[in-house]
């Protein structure tokens, strides 16, 4: 049974009571929340995951309104993982984005079985396409366009998990987080796509979360082989696009800098990245926002042997 088929009263009951166990990508999370909107958002974002009645879960998280007088003055929401609150509370309407950030934090701070890079990752023909990128580089928009309109399978829009022998990328398919202008771009590109209502004025601007495709969720255990590492750069002033090959040592240094747990894995992390990069090809793509063109170039790259 899928989560979407569960009575919404039962979902709310679980969320507010013993906790709802959700398949959140590669990991399972027990979510507890008395926040009002979160039940609907969870349905929107995780409706196509299997409903889990009882299981060993990985993360125990709560998303609850702040307590005390404040809750009447300016309602706030707190995220806690195993009773620890790693973030300062946020305005109550940011419950769902906070849950998603919190779940990413759970993985990047505790899971050291893989080397974790701050990058979007997709798969085509068994090969991984990794899109690292600083905020504003356009990695999320590109990732969403490839996942929702070009037949790529989403592995993750935020955390790329590479096996320590460098042989493969492990999927962690979770909702895609889009910001500001890219929200409308993707909503227009894919009519009827399931996403949460836009929340404005978060730390990252306006945010909306998009449900990953069924194919991404169903293949959550199917890894991808090393393929292409593409550093995107959004540049509205450029006439068309610019594609440059990046040397592997340069790419290695960039991936290490973008890794959350490189300082934890130390030499092991370096060796994982070396092995992975050795079987990948690396490029830098500067594009002017013409997504159709960018997709065309990337599809060509993926055909490379």
């Amino acid at each position: 049974m899928k989560l979407a088929e569960v009575e919404s009263a039962q979902l709310s009951h679980l969320l507010q009571g013993e906790g709802l166990i959700v398949q959140t990508g590669r990991f399972t999370s027990r979510i507890n929340s008395s926040s009002e909107n979160i039940s609907n958002d969870i349905l929107t974002l995780y409706g196509n995951t299997d409903f889990i009645e009882s299981k060993l879960y990985d993360f125990n998280v709560e998303i609850n309104p702040g307590k005390g007088l404040r809750k009447w003055l300016r309602p706030q929401i707190t995220f806690s993982f195993s009773s620890i609150q790693p973030f300062t509370p946020l305005p109550a309407n940011q419950a769902t984005p906070m849950l998603e950030w919190g779940l990413n934090w759970c993985v990047s701070n505790h899971y050291h079985q893989n080397i974790i890079i701050h990058a979007a990752v997709l798969e085509k023909n068994g090969k991984a396409l990794i899109l690292p990128g600083q905020p504003g580089a356009g990695k999320s928009t590109l990732c969403a366009a490839l996942a929702y309109s070009a037949g790529f399978r989403l592995l993750s829009d935020e955390l790329t998990l590479i096996e320590l022998d460098g042989s493969k990328v492990n999927p962690n398919p979770r909702p895609v987080s889009l910001k500001n202008k890219s929200i409308d771009i993707i909503r227009e590109m894919v009519p009827g796509i399931l996403c949460t209502e836009t929340v404005h004025d978060t730390q990252k601007g306006s945010v909306s979360l998009f449900r990953p495709a069924d194919k991404a969720v169903e293949n959550a255990n199917k890894p991808a082989k090393p393929g292409i590492v593409l550093f995107p750069k959004f540049n509205p002033d450029i006439a068309e696009y610019e594609l440059i090959e990046v040397s592997r040592p340069h790419a290695l240094v960039e991936l290490a800098n973008q890794s959350f747990n490189y300082p934890v894995l130390c030499q092991q992390g370096f060796e994982a990245l070396s092995a992975f990069i050795d079987s990948s090809q690396c490029f830098r793509l500067e594009y002017n926002g013409d997504l159709a063109k960018a997709i065309e170039i990337i599809e060509d790259l993926m055909l490379y042997e």
């Binding site: 340069h250 070396s274 050795d278």
Partner: peptide
């Protein structure tokens, strides 16, 4: 020497003292 990775023109070292990479 430490762990390293190279192609024809550059070499990257892993620095155990700072856990950084050096090209």
């Amino acid at each position: 020497p430490l762990s390293s990775y190279q192609d024809g023109s550059n070499i990257v070292y892993y620095l155990p003292e700072s856990k950084q990479t050096l090209m």
